[in-house]
Simulated scan of single mutants.
Amino acid sequence: MTMRPIRIAFQLQPQHMDYRTIRRAAARAEDLGVDVLFNWDHFYPLYGEPEGKHFECWTMLGAWAEATTRVEIGALVTCNSYRNPELLADMARTVDNISDGRLILGIGSGWFAKDYAEYGYEFGTAGGRLDDLGEALPRIESRLGRLNPAPTRRIPVLIGGGGEKKTLRLVARHADIWHSFSDADTLRHKLAVLGRHCAEVGRDLADIEVSTGVPAATAKPDDVGQPLRELGVSLFTVGIGGPEPDLAPLQEWIAWRDRENA
């Protein structure tokens, strides 16, 4: 199997921090050599104090597009429910241009009920939200093809999630990157399912980059990264939040990348 070079992403979780701390951590991560800088698309913290400090996703991506120069940037992942698909396409095109072609359009169906309730979105069902995502993706693709000026490149689409009947079918049809939080045994099974969906639509599974999240506090690259790497994972995402992000685990993953890619 042809292996893509390892890339390391940093999900800077925008919770429990002032923005100056977020800005400093993003700049430090780029200086350390991270490949991709992600945030997430929520309105409230996912853990810790439920009403703690938090910032909005896409406004932040626009700021990161100006404040960084090398890393790719994106949301892990945008909630499809929160924005009209045509508007999201226009936002993505704009951030892509601001960043000179460094945006990854990460998207998923949404799951955090508090966001929906507090901001007035209909939560519905998990299946219904996935159906909405399936309807939105072609609309996003169509709008991206009609905007003036156009994106600077074909913006890579990352789809997050592991549902075998709907999500992985959408990955096979639309994604350049598939992201999950699977361990090696689960990932092996999910890749087999994804491979079948790819075959059904006439697509090569090797065309989709495989991404996974790794716990910053406990996951050591040689122990956790190597088995996933052997299955074809090339993008490893280390998630770290506030109030003072400790980037030491990120440095371990970057060092491992450099050894393995040498």
Score class of each variant (00 low, 15 high):
residue 109 S to R: 00
residue 65 A to H: 12
residue 68 T to M: 10
residue 141 E to K: 13
residue 37 L to N: 05
residue 88 L to S: 11
residue 47 Y to A: 14
residue 62 G to S: 14
residue 138 P to R: 00
residue 76 L to R: 03
residue 45 P to R: 03
residue 130 L to C: 06
residue 83 R to F: 02
residue 145 G to W: 09
residue 60 M to F: 13
residue 36 V to M: 02
residue 72 E to C: 01
residue 32 L to K: 07
residue 58 W to S: 08
residue 61 L to A: 05
residue 156 P to Y: 02
residue 54 H to K: 01
residue 104 I to E: 12
residue 56 E to D: 14
residue 87 L to D: 13
residue 86 E to N: 03
residue 113 A to K: 14
residue 121 Y to R: 07
residue 108 G to H: 06
residue 32 L to H: 04
residue 59 T to R: 05
residue 24 R to E: 15
residue 29 A to C: 03
residue 151 P to M: 03
residue 128 G to A: 00
residue 60 M to G: 12
residue 43 F to K: 05
residue 92 A to M: 11
residue 109 S to Q: 09
residue 117 A to P: 00
residue 155 I to Y: 09
residue 138 P to E: 10
residue 23 R to I: 07
residue 45 P to L: 10
residue 113 A to S: 02
residue 86 E to M: 08
residue 86 E to Q: 14
residue 99 S to E: 12
residue 45 P to V: 07
residue 101 G to D: 09
residue 94 T to I: 07
residue 153 R to H: 15
residue 58 W to A: 01
residue 130 L to I: 14
residue 146 R to K: 15
residue 80 N to T: 10
residue 38 F to N: 01
residue 85 P to G: 03
residue 127 G to A: 11
residue 30 E to W: 08
residue 150 A to L: 10
residue 157 V to R: 06
residue 54 H to P: 05
residue 106 G to N: 05
residue 123 F to E: 03
residue 149 P to W: 05
residue 104 I to S: 11
residue 40 W to K: 04
residue 61 L to D: 01
residue 68 T to E: 11
residue 108 G to R: 04
residue 109 S to W: 05
residue 37 L to E: 02
residue 72 E to T: 09
residue 81 S to W: 08
residue 108 G to L: 04
residue 144 L to R: 12
residue 29 A to V: 07
residue 50 P to D: 13
residue 49 E to T: 11
residue 131 D to L: 03
residue 24 R to M: 09
residue 33 G to A: 09
residue 135 E to P: 04
residue 158 L to A: 14
residue 46 L to A: 13
residue 101 G to Y: 07
residue 33 G to S: 04
residue 101 G to W: 07
residue 128 G to S: 10
residue 34 V to Q: 09
residue 118 E to C: 10
residue 137 L to K: 06
